[in-house]
Amino acid sequence: MLAMYQNVFPFLLQGLWQTFVISMLAIFFGSLVGAFVGLGRARGNRWTVRGFGAYVHMLRGTPFLVQIYIVYFVLPTTNLAVFQLTSFQAAVIALSLYTSTYVAEIVSAAIEAVPRGQNEAAQAHGFNGFQTLWYVVLPQSFKMMMPPMGGVYVLVIKNTAVLSVIGVTELVREANVSIQRFPSFILSVFLLVALMYFCYCYPVLRLTRWAEKKWGGLHLNV
């Protein structure tokens, strides 16, 4: 048993590292793109609202597994050089797009949730559109984005487990590969995998909880 753990552990750590790198990159890029899309959905003109709406619904309405298939297997068949992606690149891009749609919905909902009176009051004080958004609406909506964001990030981390279909050796893949050499320890290995996921996801949830407390969470100071 101990020998098995000694043998398997370094491989699992390698997988955890891959899971960590891909999910962190996806969370970073997904949040950036998502914030932009969310802002466009809540405050843009008719065309950005419709265009970004189509983007969000198309990605949220299809399974992630199909999305990574398309990014990795279908796009390269166009023979365009820009789509000749490695497994790692395809994984980060697909997961970032996926993340961005969830972040966008949270951002736009949080902006919409700021009472209309806040906007009107700002405009009455002579703020222009950008100033209203930057000084009045965003600081308040930011507090409301925190709790659901933690949930989305954890979802993204756990979704990396699907990436093995395009040849990414993340944590679950490393576990499956290691089990081939120790078939009777399947339960112990997956228990260890679950523990590793927990050790990664739990701090992320704590962090958002901490941010929520620090910056006020759902309660508006109106």
Binding site: Y69, Y72, F73, P76, S87, S164, V165, G167, T169
Partner: peptide, 17 residues
């Protein structure tokens, strides 16, 4: 050597990866 899950094998060869 490109390592895929069983489900990824046939798409990998059809898409010329």
């Amino acid at each position: 050597l490109l390592d895929y899950d069983w489900k990824g094998l046939i798409p990998a060869v059809l898409s010329k990866k």
